[in-house]
Structures are given as C-alpha cells and as structure tokens.
Amino acid sequence: MNLIALGIAGFFSGICASMGIGGGFVLMLYLTLLAGTPQKEAQLFNLCFFLPIAAFSLWRHRKNGLLCTSPIKPALLGGIPAALAGSLLAAFLPNAQIAKLFAIFLAIIGIKTVFARRESEQSKEERVIRPTQKQ
C-alpha cells in the first residue's frame, strides 16, 4: 500500500465522512479500485477507520447543535439486528459478489443524489401537500 496515497485518501475520507456525504465510500474506492485490496479486507479497514472519525465528528456536530437525537433510538432498534444480519451475510458471500452488489447500490444512491430535489423545492411542495392531508 502506498502510504502517501493512503494518507491523502484518509484525509478526504475524513472530510466526507464527517459531513455525512459518503466518506466510507471514498476510502473504499481507493482501497478496492486503486490499491487492489480484497473486498472484505477493505470493508473491515473502512469500518475501523470510520469509528474514531465518526466519534470525533459527532462530538463536534453536537457542539454545533446539528444533532437530532429523537430518531436515533428507534433507528438503532431496527439497525442493530440488521447490521448483524448484513455483516454475517458479508462474511459468507464471496468478495466478487459483494463488490458487484456494492456497485449496484452505489449506482442507485448516486442517481438518487444527483437528481435529489432542492430543499427549497421540497419545502414548497410540502407546504402544498400538508393542508390536503389534514382534510
């Protein structure tokens, strides 16, 4: 592994991970496409990289008052068993298949992100929808 390239990838992943715009995927792409790391090794590396970065960013976001705590509890209630199931599935599946599935997942999220509505459009639409729902 080229250490300078890894450092640069780490730096940019840190920026993106703390902003919640896909830091995991930046490092993942570097590891799998550029450094040629096997899928599962890249996954574990990426997850471990994310832990301190996320903890640090959460502390900062909380200070900045950006954290919304109400959905965390119900989300984790569903998320924890799902995370167990997902990673066990990853442990059993061959690397090549996970990589293909990840590519499909990435394409869908990518398309969704590119064609996402702007916040102003969204709120305008919601303002129109809400009164009709109440009736």
Binding site: G24, F25, L47, P74, A75, L77, G78, A85, G86, F102
Partner: peptide
C-alpha cells in the same frame, strides 16, 4: 416507524458493504 425502517436499511447496507450506510441514512432520515 420511519426511523425504525431507516435504521434497518442502514444497518443492512453498512453490514453487507462496509460502506455507504451513512449515505443511505442521510437520505432516509
């Protein structure tokens, strides 16, 4: 119920791919 399902989808994607769970979580939240 929405956050519950958001969490479930995020957990599944994050576990299976080791990445991208956050992207999905942002979108669903």
């Amino acid at each position: 119920l929405l956050p519950f399902f958001a969490g479930t989808a995020t957990g599944l994607a994050n576990g299976l791919f080791g990445a991208g769970g956050g992207l999905l979580a942002v979108f669903l939240l």
